[in-house]
Design a protein around this nucleic acid. Structure first.
Lengths: 203, 203
DNA sequence: TAAATAATATACCAATTGTTACAAAAAAAT
DNA sequence: ATTTTTTTGTAACAATTGGTATATTATTTA
């Protein structure tokens, strides 16, 4: 029993918070933080503004919660990537799964962490910063994995873990832009293959 | 005499259209289409709204004109890239100049054609489309250059010009995101070097 | 000097932005 | 049955959005 439904008093909430957050995620994913208006959000969620504010706080908090759901939901798989046995396998799986994910027709194209708030006005500043942190966090994860690969002898001593991680992150971010612009899964796979041919050989 | 200053009648314009457009470009470059408000634009240009509208049309037209200035100004150099003698030289110069340009401290980080309107509300739809066209146009330029390289024997017959062009475009777009997120010139150069090591050898 | 022309500044417009007061409604607790 | 608690719906809020009407000012032409 994960969700302990304790008897709460007061008028019961008419909507499911998790479903609502999911719908908010879709909107933010597609429109970006500033591009998503509260009118569109409440409309899509089927929840009026006071209820939305009571449940999630303001727009920024709603975005952050949707973002959190994004990282533990749709893109949770990327954390497993580092468990591949070799650095090459890590890179390959990362780029291939990115290609699949970014072009999936079941949800908006591209990555929310990349496109959620790249540019924008003053009001998007905080969201922008947080998204940069998310991107850096994942990049650091890859860096550490490739440092490990060096210790394993899987990467030669002249390999640069930081550069390799940034290379993959850059490709992912570029592929995200490509996907949003209409690139197909095959297009991205071809890019991934080309990119992988640059991968340093093991000893 | 490029600018024929014909005697116009009526009250003379108090601001320089070219300078004003340049300032608008900076704002759009940094904020994106939707993120740039008319208040910020008029403030930065030192021109009040009626004058701005009389001179450039509405916000969308102003953006398009700034975009046009962008392509014939700051990023005009990318058209020369295809004149390099080999496909590898084209790729190298493209990525290196991108690294320099995207991190230059004299103007906003990143590329306006990438970040100008990746996501956004309904009102940004047209701008979004136009930016995609610009990106595709340059990608096609690279594709054609690499098709030529195949005919030249500079690329082997199994090379895929389309994929190579998309590979470079993707790297550029990813590097643009990286630059906006704080990556340094050296970071981007290291990415470029790695990316170039994937380049197919000539016969 | 007067007429014609065009850009200026102020002040406004309706529509939308994110956010909230407030009263009615629905449940549990007393 | 009444109180307490919480959510709901309506309706509003000030601020900002992109965009203009209008009157004034500055210039050239006649």
């Amino acid at each position: 029993m994960t969700t302990e439904t304790k008897k709460l008093r007061g008028r019961p909430r008419v909507f499911d918070m998790d479903e609502a957050l999911d719908k908010a995620l879709q909107i933010f994913w597609q429109r970006g933080y500033e591009g998503a208006s509260l009118a569109e959000l409440t409309e899509a969620l089927g929840v009026n503004k006071p209820s939305l504010y009571a449940a999630f706080g303001n727009k920024e908090e709603l975005f952050m919660k949707a973002l959190s759901k994004y990282t533990t939901g749709p893109v949770a798989f990327v954390r497993d990537v580092i468990n591949e046995p070799t650095s090459h396998a890590v890179a390959k799986r990362f780029l291939y799964e990115a290609a699949d994910f970014l072009t999936q027709p079941s949800h908006p194209k591209g990555c929310m962490i990349v496109q959620g708030a790249l540019s924008g006005g003053e009001s998007a500043e905080m969201v922008k910063k947080v998204l940069i942190q998310y991107r850096n966090a994942y990049e650091n994860l890859l860096t550490k994995r490739f440092e490990q690969a060096k210790q394993d002898g899987d990467l030669l001593s002249d390999a640069d873990p930081h550069a390799l991680a940034k290379y993959l992150a850059t490709l992912h971010q570029g592929m995200s832009v490509q996907a949003t612009s209409g690139a197909s899964n095959d297009d991205l796979k071809a890019i991934a293959d080309l990119a992988l041919s640059a991968w340093p050989k093991a000893k």
